[in-house]
Design a protein around this nucleic acid. Sequence first.
DNA 1: TATGCGTGGTC
DNA 2: TGACCAAGCAT
Length: 298
Amino acid sequence: MHTSPPVTRVDDPLVRDVLRWYAANARDLPWRRAEASPWAVLVSEIMLQQTPVARVLPAYERWLRRWPAPADLAAEEPGEAVRAWDRLGYPRRALRLHAAARAMVAEHGGRVPDSYQALLALPGVGDYTAAAVASFAFRRRHVVLDTNVRRVLSRSLAGEARPAPAPTAAERRRAETLLPADGATAARWAVAAMEFGALVCTARTPGCDRCPVRRRCAWRAAGFPDDGGRRRTQRYDGTDRQARGRLLRVLREAPASVPGDALAAAWDDAGQRARALDGLVADGLVEPLAGDRYRLPR
DNA sequence: TATGCGTGGTC
DNA sequence: TGACCAAGCAT
């Protein structure tokens, strides 16, 4: 690797301690290796949206072996991306990643753009992903606010068990204040804070007894207050969401098009099945053909 | 701003 | 056992 060892002085003690913790405890994940391309970083970030690392790993390896550059994916039918997405969940991500690959070919010479703004303009790339790719792949200095970072800062600095449902201006200011001056150190801080939130300062059972910043943690100092303000978790069984998943699974596992009967076998309730199918078609995940047949989009 | 969007593991 | 949780995005 051509980057120099960190020489930047990190003044904030939280940042310093989390960086030190990361140096000793980071997992060896493929998208963090020096040889990971910007495309690999982007693929990993999209796959990791709401999906655990353990489930992403095999899909990530297969994906990059098959499509090592944006142009390789762009040359495929969108349905192939949906099929290769397998059961990662939220298959619209696959469609958007495919659209992003085509946009990169059309507008960026087949490369992943290196600016936050250009990244943000890609389908399926929001604030978090744009900042993460700009930071991790290009060492640009950005606040990277994912759910882990937000939880770490809420606890250690604000003394609250969990952050607000959506990032607030105050949170951004807080994060900006901590951000190291140079891009490379800022990137390392971002990934370190995320890793720390994933492995120590976790949502359910935080490892406060082995936490390197516990002496300064505002949440601990306040006695671990918990207002219990959880997000309402949605039911899944019997929902349209589940129906969509079942239908799409039939389509993914079929080599070509399938008859409506095959979909009917996957979901009993005809009204709900029709609604789910309409939704899938509207999302571009399913293509209806003549004669009551369906396939993944071409 | 609230809601819809998959899937499977954990406690 | 059923909530809760997992590196969000789009509308």
